[in-house]
Amino acid sequence: MSSNRDIDALIDMMAKLPGLGPRSARRAVLHLIRKRALLLTPLADLMQTVAATARECVTCGNVGTSDTCDICASPKRATGELCVVEDVADLWAMERSGVFKGRYHVLGGTLSALDAVGPEELRIPKLISRVTDESITEVILALNATVDGQTTAHYIADQLGADLRVTSLAQGVPIGGELDYLDDGTISAALRARKQV
């Protein structure tokens, strides 16, 4: 245990981060202190900067350093396709793939009857207004393949109406997946969505 109250407080704060417990937080703090010039000071400066500038994009809900994120600000991304995701982490995952060239809309969660999360708690009304305002031609529902995720997808599809093309991500065998290790739900979904080779 460290003898300094500030260092203890730093360890306690670090231990609250996802993936870190008290032991790993202590190790991380010790590492930062040992590499003060290389890691600790730049990290502290960056954290201060991000704390001052990070905000939610007013249009899509992505996290950036200005009111409108880079994706929403870019005219190249105005393809008429809008990808709806549950969380900012999902948006970043889609961006990492580099495949989707349109814009995003972050819901901020999924509908859940049990947790009393209704459409008003999510950014669904904003999504509906964006579809009209931005002349969207296709909405891609990239929501999790869970009961809550798909319930939300059906609800959004109902709200958007039949005139708009609304699609969802395919479900099936992941790249590198071995059938022997897949659960029977995934195998059923994959079989249902089979295609001609």
């Binding site: 009857a113 393949a145 009961v147 798909q150 319930t151 059906h154 739900g185 059923s188």
Partner: peptide
């Protein structure tokens, strides 16, 4: 024992019914 996710996620009515 058995998953019902594929059946539920494959149909709008089934999903609403399960919920």
């Amino acid at each position: 024992v058995r998953s019902r996710a594929a059946a539920a996620l494959g149909s709008r009515l089934a999903l609403a019914g399960l919920n």
